[in-house]
Amino acid sequence: MRGSHRTSTTQMEVTSIRLEKTLKDSLKSLSGSQGYQTLIRDILWNYVQQKSGEYRPNFSKTDIRATIPATARKDESCVLSGKLISEDDEMLLALTIHGDFVPVSEEALKK
């Protein structure tokens, strides 16, 4: 999978993809100085990692806007501490500044 370093473009394969002009323009404006192709690669890697179960978002307490008491229906990983929240354990669902709900242990918020 993707490492912590960037792959040289000489080691990449050329792929053609058709995008709507408005989508391409939006990606260009969102990408800033990194370029829209780099942004597309980052988006695709994030998708692959999420689907493979390897995605581990990095959050801090300042990213959390609100919490809701919940019960884990399967094993989860606290996004603040990385510690296991076992199935049927009490936990919190935290609403992030990005609008995502993520699992958080009560202990991680107390620290």
Score class of each variant (00 low, 15 high):
Ser16Gly: 11
Val79Cys: 08
Ile40Ser: 04
Leu19His: 06
Arg73Met: 10
Tyr47Gly: 07
Thr7Trp: 04
Lys24Ala: 12
Ile40Phe: 09
Lys111Val: 14
Ile17Pro: 02
Glu87Gln: 14
Tyr47Pro: 04
Leu27Cys: 06
Leu44Trp: 05
Cys78Gln: 05
Gln37Gly: 06
Glu20Ser: 11
Glu90Ser: 14
Ile68Leu: 15
Leu84Ser: 13
Ile64Tyr: 01
Phe101Leu: 15
Lys21Tyr: 05
Leu92Val: 01
Arg2Lys: 10
Asp75Thr: 08
Ser4Pro: 10
Ile43His: 01
Val14Glu: 12
Ser60Phe: 03
Arg65Phe: 11
Ser4Glu: 13
Pro57Trp: 00
Glu54Ala: 09
Thr9Trp: 07
Gly3Ser: 10
Ala108Ile: 00
Leu109Trp: 09
Ile68Trp: 10
Leu27Arg: 03
Met12Phe: 03
Gly99Glu: 06
Pro57His: 00
Pro57Asn: 00
Glu76Lys: 13
Ser105Asp: 06
Lys51Trp: 07
Thr22Met: 05
Lys21Pro: 09
Lys28Val: 14
Leu93Ala: 09
Gly53Thr: 02
Gly32Ala: 02
Gln34Phe: 07
Trp45Asn: 13
Met12Asn: 12
Ala66Thr: 08
Met1Leu: 08
Trp45Glu: 15
Lys21Ala: 14
Lys110Met: 08
Arg2Cys: 06
Arg73Ser: 14
His98Leu: 15
Val79Phe: 02
Trp45Lys: 07
Ile40Tyr: 03
Arg2Glu: 13
Arg41Gly: 09
Leu44Gly: 11
Thr67Ser: 09
Gln11Trp: 07
Pro69Gln: 07
Thr15Val: 15
Tyr55Ile: 03
Lys83Cys: 08
Gly35Thr: 05
Ser81Gln: 02
Ser77Val: 14
Leu93Glu: 12
Ser8Tyr: 04
Ser81Pro: 04
Arg6Phe: 11
Ile40Val: 15
Ile97Tyr: 03
